[in-house]
Design a binder for these strands. Structure first.
Lengths: 301, 301
DNA sequence: CTCTAGTGTTCGATATACTGAACAATAGGC
DNA sequence: GCCTATTGTTCAGTATATCGAACACTAGAG
């Protein structure tokens, strides 16, 4: 749990926690129990961050929240990565054109982080709010690994039962389908909403690895009713999530756009939205000097 | 130099450095010498931040820059402090109306941090760029202390010669003038540009306390040609910086807006711009539920 | 190709930050 | 106003991160 620089790790654990729960402020004690850090140690960390302006302390309520220096750092980070500003404009366009919510996310290790959203959140999914971190485990985050190396795919599989070859084969087929289409299409299901509820709990106590693995296992349980392998144009679907990747100069996925909504839509409507999204991310890829990795078989549509 | 949580402090020293120098990326060794941190220690810190997505590592050039997680944290911080979004709109308005650059800054300890700007930077002053940190020492940052307690003012005086009563009296008179006007008006001078050049050096090596104190002493030397105590409406001035405060609910200065430009302007033009700025910050103060502290002289009860 | 300049990693010895519980100081409830 | 619950600070012992130098490793120049 503790890396080679524990103080730094915990300092940013605080930041991550406050980012995911930006609506309220927290006292030292609250953060101590939520993050599993000794009060004495955390006190020193919080004082350091407050001195630097990265946290703001409300001396009235003795609470901490993210401070102004974090805004400056965020602006500098955004200025350094033009992708996100380019994508923001396109996301607004997509959200307006499809009447869907459009969120942007990045992969960080074995998680994905929601960075931005556009349009009205018709679905109140916890994992769709900016600042949220969602485990990057099957079948979540297909677009982040579909064009990746075998090693990346294996890491994505994670703790899947090694002996369950059929599950692996199924997922590989799904990823192949994602490459062909240029985007991933997933269906809304009750499982998905169950995951959403669990993530709320996980947000409240990120250090609880038992909750974390529970979420991961349930996310894997989504598989059955989650994938849309072949859409029937005239059929009706409950709703859909469509995700497409933006590639960087080295061919890696540096950003992903997800359309969520399309409630009670026909297969044709879903496929049309998917095409629109995929062409938009391709446009963004070109705008930022990105490169789509060549698939082994077939051509990206 | 090292506080009770050195790893956390240094981790954010890296962030601060990358924020101030967002244009390029830096290698481990560069950061090591620039920040005065042991390479071995820094390596652990950078790895931790990179794992969290707060830094992005270019494996090609082995360089580090601010990562996507920092953007999410910045957005969360901005969402938590509505002041900055309210102010941004007004800053754009002011910049357009006065043909000046308008920057927003906050006070963090004994420094002020530039957060946002609007309009074209007619003056290429280093200290006016977002992400920059400028020492909060006389005569800089008058608006941050003019309404503050005596303790805050004394701290602002800093290492001024205690025996030099005339300097203190002069500064107190300046602050009184700022309170009366509702804003601070300062004039461009060669000294100012000299400070700007020194700040570039300081940015390159923030750990050098000798440079830091040198900057502070030169800033104090500005005093003579910096203050505009009484403007002559028909006189011409080389240029001006006008700063006004935004107050929080507790009466403290939570944000400051500075208009820079007004090259070769008359005293009347400068005073008009000052009035416009002061009324705007007052409006923002009210929008965010702020309160202007009552002046200490002539208080009832 | 060889050489150089620079980068990042390894390693044991030392100093230092972390821990945990008891303490003190605040805020909230009636 | 008093009491209670919770907050945040203090302190010494122990575990641990940090330091500095020597080591690999890459990239680029001649």
């Amino acid at each position: 749990m503790s890396g080679p620089a524990p103080a730094a790790e915990r300092a940013f654990a605080v930041v991550t926690y406050l980012t995911a729960n930006a609506r309220r402020s927290f006292t030292l004690s609250e953060l101590s129990v939520a993050l599993g850090i000794n009060k004495a140690s955390l006190s020193a960390i919080l004082a350091t961050l407050t001195d630097g302006g990265y946290l703001a302390r409300n001396s009235q309520h003795r609470t901490y929240s993210l401070g102004p220096a974090m805004i400056a750092a965020g602006l500098a980070a955004a200025a350094h990565n033009p992708v996100f500003e380019v994508a923001r404009v396109e996301m607004e366009r997509l959200a307006a054109a499809t009447a869907c919510q459009c969120v942007g996310s990045v992969a960080i290790g074995q998680e994905m982080l929601i960075l931005a959203n556009a349009g009205e959140p018709t679905l109140r999914l916890q994992q769709m709010a900016p600042g949220q971190r969602v485990p990057l485990t099957p079948p979540y985050g297909e677009v982040f690994v579909a064009w990746g190396s075998d090693d990346e795919v294996d890491e994505w599989f994670g703790h899947l039962d090694k002996t369950d070859a059929s599950a692996h084969d199924h997922l590989r087929a799904v990823l192949e389908r994602v490459r062909q289409r240029g985007c991933a299409i997933n269906l809304l299901s009750d499982h998905l909403f169950a995951v959403s509820r669990l993530l709320v709990e996980l947000d409240a106590a990120p250090h609880r690895s038992d909750l974390r693995s529970k979420v991961s296992s349930i996310i894997r349980g989504l598989e059955d009713d989650y994938e849309l392998l072949d859409a029937q144009p005239q059929d009706n679907y409950r709703g859909a999530l469509i995700a497409a990747p933006v590639f960087g100069p080295d061919g890696s996925v540096i950003y992903a756009l997800t359309l969520s909504g399309l409630l009670n839509a026909t297969g044709r409507q879903i496929l049309d939205a998917a095409d629109m999204l995929a062409s938009t991310t391709l446009y963004i890829t070109q705008q930022v000097g990105g490169r789509v990795p060549l698939p082994e078989t077939g051509v990206v549509g």
